[in-house]
Amino acid sequence: RPMNAFMVWAKDERKRLAQQNPDLHNAVLSKMLGKAWKELNAAEKRPFVEEAERLRVQHLRDHPNYK
């Protein structure tokens, strides 16, 4: 299953946050990521939305029978 825009963004952002906050549990990091994503405007999200769409199209090509 291809990543959605949030997952594309969160992949690198989670690493950055975890390095800055090594003692935080994953659940806390996830909440921080969700809050930060909601605060991004459409222009800030656009590159990740476009990458998610590219991944979706590639997934359809690679797995035409996937449901």
Score class of each variant (00 low, 15 high):
36 A>E: 06
56 R>M: 08
6 F>E: 05
48 F>A: 03
38 K>T: 10
9 W>A: 01
16 R>A: 04
5 A>V: 00
5 A>R: 01
59 H>T: 12
45 K>T: 03
4 N>Y: 00
58 Q>P: 09
23 D>T: 07
65 N>W: 07
43 A>N: 14
8 V>H: 00
39 E>R: 08
42 A>S: 12
63 H>G: 13
14 R>A: 07
34 G>L: 14
63 H>S: 13
60 L>T: 08
65 N>P: 14
52 A>I: 00
26 N>D: 15
25 H>C: 15
29 L>C: 04
43 A>M: 08
14 R>G: 07
10 A>H: 00
5 A>N: 04
41 N>F: 02
36 A>R: 12
20 Q>E: 12
55 L>S: 07
21 N>D: 06
35 K>G: 04
16 R>Y: 02
45 K>G: 01
26 N>Y: 07
63 H>A: 13
24 L>S: 04
49 V>A: 10
35 K>L: 06
12 D>L: 05
55 L>K: 11
54 R>W: 02
39 E>H: 04
10 A>V: 07
42 A>I: 05
12 D>S: 10
23 D>C: 15
31 K>N: 09
67 K>A: 15
27 A>G: 09
64 P>Q: 15
57 V>I: 07
5 A>D: 03
36 A>M: 15
19 Q>V: 11
46 R>Q: 12
42 A>H: 05
53 E>Y: 03
34 G>C: 15
17 L>V: 05
15 K>L: 08
15 K>P: 10
32 M>Q: 11
59 H>Q: 12
50 E>Y: 08
40 L>Y: 03
58 Q>R: 10
31 K>Q: 12
24 L>N: 01
50 E>N: 06
30 S>D: 14
8 V>P: 00
67 K>T: 14
30 S>F: 10
48 F>L: 02
65 N>E: 13
65 N>D: 12
38 K>V: 06
11 K>P: 02
49 V>L: 08
20 Q>H: 02
28 V>E: 15
17 L>Q: 02
30 S>E: 15
28 V>N: 12
32 M>V: 08
28 V>C: 10
5 A>M: 02
45 K>V: 02
3 M>Y: 05
6 F>C: 00
31 K>P: 08
59 H>W: 12
12 D>M: 08
12 D>N: 11
3 M>S: 04
4 N>C: 04
6 F>S: 02
60 L>M: 11
17 L>K: 01
9 W>R: 00
1 R>S: 08
40 L>M: 14
32 M>Y: 03
47 P>R: 08
23 D>A: 06
24 L>T: 11
45 K>N: 04
25 H>K: 12
11 K>T: 06
3 M>C: 03
38 K>Q: 12
61 R>Q: 12
48 F>T: 01
4 N>A: 00
41 N>Q: 06
39 E>A: 12
2 P>H: 08
20 Q>A: 13
49 V>C: 06
9 W>H: 01
36 A>N: 12
34 G>P: 01
2 P>Y: 11
38 K>S: 14
53 E>D: 08
34 G>E: 14
18 A>N: 15
15 K>D: 05
12 D>K: 12
60 L>W: 07
9 W>D: 06
34 G>K: 15
45 K>C: 00
56 R>L: 05
64 P>W: 09
31 K>D: 01
37 W>A: 01
26 N>S: 14
11 K>L: 06
56 R>P: 02
24 L>K: 09
37 W>V: 01
66 Y>E: 15
51 E>R: 08
21 N>I: 01
56 R>W: 07
48 F>S: 01
13 E>A: 13
38 K>P: 05
28 V>S: 13
63 H>V: 13
41 N>H: 06
41 N>R: 07
7 M>T: 11
39 E>D: 14
54 R>P: 01
51 E>T: 08
32 M>I: 13
37 W>M: 00
39 E>C: 06
58 Q>E: 11
35 K>F: 11
18 A>W: 08
34 G>S: 15
59 H>K: 09
43 A>E: 13
6 F>R: 01
52 A>K: 00
65 N>C: 10
4 N>D: 10
54 R>L: 07
2 P>W: 06
65 N>A: 12
47 P>T: 04
44 E>A: 12
37 W>G: 03
6 F>I: 00
14 R>F: 03
58 Q>M: 13
1 R>Y: 14
39 E>I: 07
32 M>H: 13
45 K>A: 01
6 F>M: 05
5 A>K: 00
54 R>A: 05
60 L>F: 09
59 H>A: 13
46 R>S: 09
7 M>I: 09
7 M>Y: 12
4 N>P: 00
38 K>L: 10
57 V>G: 10
65 N>K: 13
55 L>P: 00
42 A>E: 12
57 V>P: 06
30 S>I: 07
7 M>R: 11
51 E>C: 07
65 N>R: 13
45 K>Y: 01
16 R>W: 00
56 R>K: 08
16 R>S: 03
2 P>F: 07
53 E>R: 08
25 H>A: 12
17 L>G: 00
22 P>T: 02
40 L>K: 14
59 H>R: 11
51 E>W: 00
27 A>S: 09
18 A>T: 06
63 H>Y: 15
2 P>D: 04
4 N>H: 03
14 R>D: 00
49 V>N: 08
16 R>V: 04
9 W>S: 01
2 P>G: 10
1 R>N: 13
44 E>R: 05
8 V>I: 10
28 V>D: 10
11 K>F: 01
50 E>W: 05
8 V>K: 04
52 A>F: 08
42 A>Q: 13
59 H>E: 07
45 K>E: 05
54 R>Y: 04
56 R>C: 01
33 L>R: 00
39 E>K: 11
44 E>F: 03
32 M>P: 03
2 P>N: 15
54 R>F: 04
57 V>N: 09
28 V>P: 06
52 A>W: 01
12 D>G: 06
36 A>Q: 13
42 A>D: 12
63 H>C: 11
22 P>L: 01
62 D>Q: 13
11 K>Y: 02
27 A>Q: 09
14 R>V: 02
32 M>S: 05
19 Q>E: 14
33 L>D: 08
60 L>R: 14
61 R>G: 10
14 R>S: 06
30 S>H: 08
4 N>K: 06
25 H>S: 15
63 H>K: 14
47 P>E: 04
18 A>I: 12
1 R>W: 04
4 N>I: 07
4 N>Q: 00
2 P>K: 15
36 A>W: 01
17 L>P: 00
14 R>T: 05
46 R>H: 02
61 R>E: 14
50 E>S: 04
56 R>Y: 07
24 L>M: 12
61 R>W: 07
36 A>T: 07
59 H>I: 06
33 L>W: 00
57 V>S: 13
48 F>K: 03
58 Q>N: 07
7 M>D: 15
42 A>N: 10
12 D>E: 12
40 L>W: 03
55 L>G: 05
16 R>F: 12
3 M>V: 11
38 K>G: 13
2 P>T: 12
49 V>K: 06
30 S>C: 10
31 K>Y: 05
63 H>N: 15
64 P>G: 12
2 P>I: 06
63 H>R: 14
58 Q>Y: 05
16 R>N: 05
7 M>F: 08
48 F>C: 03
18 A>G: 05
3 M>W: 03
10 A>I: 04
12 D>T: 10
20 Q>M: 12
9 W>Q: 00
50 E>M: 07
43 A>K: 09
9 W>M: 02
58 Q>C: 03
6 F>K: 02
40 L>E: 02
60 L>V: 13
63 H>D: 11
3 M>G: 09
66 Y>T: 13
47 P>Y: 04
16 R>I: 05
35 K>Q: 14
53 E>V: 02
9 W>N: 03
11 K>R: 11
15 K>W: 03
24 L>D: 11
25 H>N: 15
38 K>C: 08
52 A>S: 08
65 N>Q: 09
65 N>L: 11
31 K>M: 10
19 Q>G: 10
33 L>F: 02
7 M>W: 04
29 L>K: 01
34 G>W: 14
15 K>I: 05
59 H>F: 10
29 L>T: 06
34 G>D: 14
58 Q>L: 10
38 K>E: 11
54 R>E: 07
42 A>T: 12
65 N>Y: 08
24 L>Y: 04
14 R>Q: 11
57 V>Q: 12
14 R>L: 04
41 N>M: 05
62 D>K: 12
52 A>P: 01
15 K>V: 09
40 L>H: 03
23 D>W: 00
49 V>E: 14
5 A>G: 07
2 P>V: 08
61 R>T: 13
17 L>E: 00
61 R>C: 10
19 Q>W: 06
62 D>P: 06
61 R>I: 13
31 K>V: 05
31 K>G: 11
52 A>R: 00
48 F>D: 03
51 E>H: 13
52 A>Y: 03
44 E>I: 09
64 P>L: 10
2 P>A: 05
53 E>S: 06
58 Q>W: 03
18 A>R: 13
5 A>W: 00
6 F>L: 03
21 N>P: 01
18 A>F: 14
64 P>D: 13
33 L>N: 00
54 R>M: 02
30 S>R: 13
